[in-house]
Design a protein around this nucleic acid. Sequence first.
DNA 1: AATCCACTTGCAACAGAGTTGCAAAATATT
DNA 2: AATATTTTGCAACTCTGTTGCAAGTGGATT
Lengths: 136, 136
Amino acid sequence: MDQLRETLKGHQLRTTTCREDVLSTFITKKNALSHGDLEGALGENYDRVTIYRTLKTFLEKGIIHKVLDDEGLRYALCSHSCSEEKHQHDHIHFKCSECGETNCIENLHIPAVQLPMGYQAQNFNLLIQGTCPKCS
Amino acid sequence: MDQLRETLKGHQLRTTTCREDVLSTFITKKNALSHGDLEGALGENYDRVTIYRTLKTFLEKGIIHKVLDDEGLRYALCSHSCSEEKHQHDHIHFKCSECGETNCIENLHIPAVQLPMGYQAQNFNLLIQGTCPKCS
DNA sequence: AATCCACTTGCAACAGAGTTGCAAAATATT
DNA sequence: AATATTTTGCAACTCTGTTGCAAGTGGATT
Ligand SMILES: [Mn+2]
Ligand SMILES: [Mn+2]
Ligand SMILES: [Zn+2]
Ligand SMILES: [Zn+2]
C-alpha cells in the first residue's frame, strides 16, 4: 500500500483513494485494461468521469501507456520508469483472440524498420493478434 | 465509375450509390479514413447508420482493412485483393503527428518477430507515429 | 491542531461513436 | 412487369468520452 503512495508521489501526484485503487488494479491484474474494465473492477466506488481523469493523468505523467486495439483503447503500466518528458516504448503487445486478454511482452522489442525518405519516426506500436500460451 | 461496379461485383456485393461513393472516397483520398471522415465527405447524402453498415460489409468482404490508431479506428483499402476468406496484411501504417493523416506504406513490411514459446501469431498491426515527408 | 490554497472529485449535461429492429425502398433476377 | 432478396433510413438505444462547476480533500504551512 505504501508502494502505491511512493509511485504517485514520485510522479508528483497527490495520493487519493481512486488513484491508489486504479494503480493497484493495474498492478494486480497484469494485462492491459480498458476504461470499462476499471469501471467493472472498481465498481460503484468512483464516478466514471473520475476514472477517465485518472487515466488521463496517469498517461500524462508516464505511469501508463496506451495499447492499441482493434476494438477500443486499452492501457497498461509503463514498466521502465517513464516520466512526463520521456514517454517511449518499443515493446510488443499481444492480444489473444480466445481469451481476449492483451499483454505487454516487455522483453520483446519491435524490430527496426527502414522508413522511406522523408519519414521521421517517433513512436512505435505493434499489436500482434493470435493465440496466447494459456489458450493454445 | 465502372471500375467501382466491377470491384463491388467482384466481392458479391450489389451496386448501390452509397457503396460506390464510399469506395470512391477511399480511392480518391488515399489515406486511412474514419467513419467521421466519410460522414464529412459524403455529407447529407447518406444516413450515418448506412455508412457504418457499408464499412462493416467492406471489412467482411475484404475490400478495406482496419487501421489501428490511438484516438479511434480508421479504415483503408486493401491493395492486394483480399477476400472474405483470406484477409491478411503485413504492411506498416504511418501516422503523421502534424497533419494527422494516416497512410498505408504498402511496400514496407513488418519484420518478423520471434515470439516466446506458446504464442501463435495470426495478425500484425504496426503503427509508426512521427512526421511525414510533407510535414518535415 | 487549525488554516489555507491548490488540486481532485462527483454530478449533470453534453457530444460522439456504434448498434439494433423494422418498415420502406432499391437491386438483381425471372 | 413481377418477384424475391438485399439494402436503406429512421428512430431509439447503449456505450464511450468530454466539459463546467460547486463541493470536498490533500498536503503544506503556521
Ligand atoms: Mn505495453
Ligand atoms: Mn493498410
Ligand atoms: Zn488467451
Ligand atoms: Zn504530415
